[in-house]
Computed example of a mutant assay.
Amino acid sequence: MPDAPGPAPRRLVFSDVDETLLSGKSLFDFLDFYFAEVHGAEGTRHAAGTRSRIAALMAGGAPREAGNRAYYEAWRGERLDAVTELGTTWFAGRRGLPGFYVPAVRAALREHRDAGDHVVLVSGSLPAVVDPVAADVGARHVLCTRPEVRDGVLTGAVAGEPCIGEGKRRALRDLSTRYPDVSLSDCYGYGDHVSDLPMLTEVGHPVVVGGSPDLLAQVPGARVLPYGGPV
């Protein structure tokens, strides 16, 4: 998704995607959807095996960055055009489902956008998934993990740094240099997990979605938004 043109923002509003703006884990949902669509039963087994490997990594105490890299390894050999096309198809089929968006966050981002703020989606998920969501909510920028591509084919590696943990902080800081008149102390950040802490501590107005005790302990006084609420 190219950065959208427009007037300078009052503020930047950074939002995590999975389990913050969206109620579920889009990257795993899309993994299952894509490989079943393209490779049938073999693809379904491949997606399930990938999930199991990542779950084992997490159970063993590996950081989310390790799980993110393992996720992208599963895409080795897939064509970028097919992944992008099916990302659009996946989103079209999910968008209208009850509970796809977290209502309180969807509404908050709409209010920010209407007030002249620029919404920025920040995610460890891939562009095929995040770009359609960004277009739907009117986000100006997407900061996400990007798979390495050679000759139109995903290599299984990540291009640059995964947008997870400290990677989110660095991506946020890099984008903010393009807005020298906007102070991060005036900006907002929305996240649900301690891996969002590096992003949330960069802004003056952190918002914890779902009320994670571990995250709230690190950002005392943060506003809390529930997973439920009006659209």
Rank of each mutant, 00 (worst) to 15 (best):
G40T: 04
E42V: 14
G43C: 13
H46Q: 15
A48Q: 15
A48M: 11
G49V: 10
T50N: 02
R51S: 12
S52P: 01
S52V: 14
I54D: 00
A56S: 13
A56T: 07
A56V: 02
L57E: 01
L57G: 00
M58H: 08
M58I: 10
A59M: 05
A59R: 14
G60Y: 05
G61N: 04
G61W: 08
G61A: 05
R64C: 02
E65T: 14
E65G: 12
A66N: 02
A66Y: 03
G67I: 03
G67Q: 01
G67A: 03
N68L: 14
N68Q: 13
R69F: 07
R69S: 12
A70K: 12
Y71V: 03
E73S: 08
E73N: 04
A74D: 10
W75F: 15
W75A: 06
G77Q: 04
G77R: 01
G77Y: 05
E78Y: 09
R79F: 12
D81G: 02
D81P: 02
D81R: 10
A82S: 14
T84F: 05
E85S: 13
L86P: 00
L86G: 00
G87M: 00
W90K: 03
A92W: 01
L97Y: 05
G99Q: 05
G99K: 09
Y101K: 04
Y101H: 09
Y101T: 00
V102E: 09
P103N: 01
A104E: 09
A107N: 09
A108R: 14
A108M: 06
R113C: 01
R113T: 11
R113I: 04
G116W: 15
D117T: 05
D117S: 08
D117G: 01
D117L: 07
V119E: 06
L121C: 09
V122A: 13
V122K: 12
S123L: 10
S123W: 13
G124Q: 10
S125Q: 09
L126D: 08
P127W: 11
P127Y: 08
A128F: 02
D131K: 04
D131V: 07
P132G: 09
P132C: 07
A135M: 04
A135R: 15
D136C: 04
V137L: 07
G138E: 04
